[in-house]
Computed example of a mutant assay.
Amino acid sequence: MTRETSRHAPTFVARSPEDLLAVVPVVLGFAPTDSVVMLTFGGARPFHARVDLPHDPGDVAEVVGALVDPAVRHRVGRVVLVLYSGSDQPARRVANALARSLERSGIAVVDCLRTDGQRWFPLLGRHPGVPAHGVRYDVTGHRFAAEAVVEGFVTHASRDDLARSVAADPARVAAVEAALAGVDTSSGSWRDAALRMIRLVTTHTGLGTVATDDELAQLVGDLRVDEVLEMAVELLERETARDDVAFWTDVVRRTPAPALAGPAVLLAFAAWLAGHGALAWCALDRVVEVDADNAWAGLLARLLEQAVPPQVWGDLEPPGTDTDSHAHESPDVA
């Protein structure tokens, strides 16, 4: 099951179903399909989340738990549910089960809609008088979308489109692969490699530039040393997360598979710090391609699954420490 939490988009005030339908792609970073989206309000640290819409009735309980558990943990007061589906039955089945569980947990469901991408339909008895064939809408020119563009937020056409934004670029990978042949990581200490990494990363993220093939080859070679990767993770900060996302996205797209895990971990954490959970999951997918048991990826996956906000950054222990097995099991972030 795929679950994503929202990025730090501008603040919007939704006053109509059309406003809600316009804001979802902006906060997620892509236009969802076959999905259950939950927008939360009233908690100490509100979040918004998406899961795949289950078509098998046996999977409904898992989806309900995936959304209700973090809402309860973060003491959310109110939610809006938007279900993306061309079929009424699976959407209504999930909406009913989810609304019951939320309300039993003391969380009010303010609104609940289904959309097929062109028309919206009320669920749970909201919006009386809406015709059975739904209400046609078009949010392509909505002011929320325009405001997001002004703020520099890119909204992708789909999750697949978002995933392609971090996919390998074969020609550029080949260029770095050739440069790797000339990289010597056997000489010098890991501290030398860490200092080299810090200088390169801080220079390029500060200037908004990209590494040359030779620089990138040396960087990804150095990141294969555990201590260097941990220091690179420690360099990440919420205040500069968007710059870090831009830099590490470029690195991930150009890195050969044998050296991919470290850069993809760094992109995933940078995306989480930027509040872009969907991009973080896409980056984690790239990690799993080459290292299914990566400890850093496991740590971030737990944070994302529990909707842990980036505000806890700095209090986390790296994977493999004595506290890792229990400190992140149920973090108190409310």
Rank of each mutant, 00 (worst) to 15 (best):
R92D: 13
L216H: 10
S85A: 15
T33N: 03
V26Y: 03
V201N: 03
P258V: 04
R3F: 11
P258F: 06
A22R: 06
F247N: 01
H276G: 09
R104N: 15
E227F: 05
R199W: 06
A246F: 01
V51S: 11
G221N: 06
S35N: 04
T205P: 04
R15S: 13
R199K: 10
P310V: 06
W190N: 00
G262F: 00
S186T: 13
P258H: 05
H8C: 02
R50V: 15
G141W: 00
I107K: 12
D243M: 10
D116V: 08
G117W: 00
A307G: 13
G298D: 07
L207T: 04
G275C: 04
V76H: 03
L20F: 10
R172N: 08
A99V: 10
L235M: 15
A194C: 04
S16N: 02
G275F: 07
L98R: 02
T205I: 15
R93M: 13
D324M: 05
I107M: 10
G43S: 09
L67G: 06
G125V: 02
A232V: 05
E62Q: 15
E234R: 15
A108H: 14
R159S: 09
R50Y: 04
T40S: 15
G125H: 03
V135C: 12
R7C: 07
W248P: 02
V24Y: 01
T212L: 08
L219G: 04
D169C: 05
F153S: 06
G134A: 08
D52V: 11
A108M: 05
L83S: 06
D213E: 15
R254V: 04
C112M: 07
V333S: 11
H127D: 03
T11C: 08
A211T: 14
F12P: 05
V13F: 10
G188C: 06
Q306D: 14
G208H: 09
E305P: 01
R104P: 01
S85W: 00
P128V: 12
T185H: 03
V290N: 08
L300G: 10
E317V: 11
P70F: 01
T33F: 01
Q218C: 12
V76N: 10
R78F: 05
A9C: 09
E289S: 09
E151R: 14
V288I: 11
D222T: 01
L235T: 00
E329K: 13
D324E: 12
R242N: 06
A44D: 14
V23N: 00
H328Q: 12
A99N: 06
T140G: 06
Y137P: 00
R93S: 09
P46Y: 13
A171L: 12
R100M: 08
A297D: 01
V80Q: 03
Y84I: 03
P170L: 13
L102N: 05
S186G: 14
G208D: 05
V109L: 14
E151K: 14
Q118I: 00
V183Q: 00
G262Y: 01
H204M: 04
G208L: 09
Q89P: 00
T115Y: 07
A259R: 11
P256T: 06
E305M: 11
D226S: 13
Q306M: 12
D226A: 14
M1W: 12
A259V: 12
D315R: 13
H8Q: 11
V130E: 12
A181N: 06
D332H: 13
L273M: 11
L267A: 12
A241W: 07
V82N: 07
A179Y: 09
F121Q: 07
P331G: 05
D226C: 03
E237Q: 14
G275D: 02
L28D: 02
V82F: 00
